[in-house]
């Protein structure tokens, strides 16, 4: 109690590690271009390109500067929202990405808003009523869903809800001016696919975390003090479950952000993932870099958030000796 709390120091340390990781990852993404065999300009423009067009291309993409200079330039640009030009069609990447990134995050948020409360709730219920039919149903059905490829789940949903019942469209064709209700309707199937996949993981992990917690001696002690079961769970078990559950959520959100790539392709949804896959096929490296940077940064930030919440919710660190 006399010493200062180590909490701010720990959080700062974790933040610093997060920033460092982001920097290293951005460097790796940037240096990928250096690994391209041969000359980039020739690679992109083809063998038939004239010396002038090659020179103009190099000039335009700053390829004549040394790599560290270009990295700093690229990083500075990325931080201010300028992601450079697409190598394939020479349009500004920020423009290409803007709407698509928005679409992707909307879809991920849509899925998360349904999946997180549902999965955590069901996971807790399954843990509390361990061995019940509900628990058995949840654990066997989730094992199956985890094992399925995303597109398998997607096509089954399409077959059922789009082709057979015709309740929802099979293509998630959103347009920029679309209203929210319409958008939610159109993107229901891709969202549901992600909900199913992510929920299975999240439920299993939440259940495991709570089952561990319920076996702890202090939870048993609370029962032996004659405390009501509901209160034991609400007061003694759940507050200590915050850190593990938050970790579970963050891990799954990170997973969701990546899983979105496949789901977007299945439903032909105009998002970042779709663009990334197309650009990989076209080998449009600057666009790939930008998209990878956005995905990686989101992923790193989510993990960072989980760790910090874990630190903050640890009573031993909150109340040092």
């Amino acid at each position: 109690m006399t010493r200062m709390s180590p909490l701010p120091k720990l959080i700062l340390r974790r933040l610093a590690i997060g920033v460092l990781t982001l920097l290293i990852v951005s460097a790796i993404i940037f240096w990928a271009i250096e690994l391209l065999p041969g000359d980039i300009a020739t690679e992109v423009l083809g063998q038939s390109a004239t010396a002038e067009t090659l020179a103009a291309f190099r000039d335009r993409f700053g390829l004549n500067d040394p790599a560290p200079v270009r990295y700093l330039h690229w990083l500075g640009g990325a931080l201010t929202g300028d992601l450079g030009l697409s190598m394939a069609n020479q349009r500004p990447i920020a423009q290409l990405l803007g709407d698509r990134a928005f679409n992707t995050f909307i879809l991920a948020a849509y899925a998360a808003l349904i999946a997180v409360p549902l999965a955590v709730g069901l996971g807790i219920v399954a843990a509390l009523y361990r061995g019940s039919w509900l628990d058995r149903f949840i654990s066997s059905s989730t094992l199956a869903v985890i094992s399925f490829p995303e597109y398998f789940v997607a096509y089954i949903l399409i077959l059922l809800f789009a082709v057979h019942l015709q309740w929802f469209p099979s293509l998630a064709a959103v347009t920029p001016g679309m209203g929210l209700a319409q958008r939610l309707y159109v993107t229901f199937l891709p969202a549901l696919t992600m909900v199913l996949i992510v929920m299975a993981h999240m439920m299993r992990m939440t259940r495991a975390a709570i089952v561990n917690l319920l076996a702890l001696p202090y939870v048993e002690m609370a029962h032996l003090k004659g405390i009501r079961r509901r209160r034991v769970i609400a007061v003694h078990a759940l507050p200590n479950a915050v850190a593990p559950i938050v970790t579970v959520i963050a891990l799954n959100l990170a997973y969701l952000i990546v899983g979105v790539v496949l789901v977007e392709v299945v439903f032909v949804y105009p998002g970042l993932g779709q663009l990334l896959v197309d650009s990989v096929a076209k080998r449009d490296i600057t666009v790939v870099q930008a998209a990878c940077l956005i995905f990686a940064a989101t992923y790193i930030l989510l993990n960072l958030a989980a760790d910090i919440i874990g630190i903050v919710s640890n009573p031993r660190l909150l109340h040092p000796r």
């Binding site: 702890l216 001696p217 202090y218 048993e220 002690m221 609370a222 032996l224 003090k225 003694h236 507050p239 200590n240 009573p315 031993r316």
Partner: peptide, 15 residues
């Protein structure tokens, strides 16, 4: 009432 062997484990760390 009950007194457990390991009080360190039988007290809730968060309270």
């Amino acid at each position: 009432a009950y007194v457990a062997q390991s009080s360190a484990a039988a007290f809730n760390p968060a309270w």
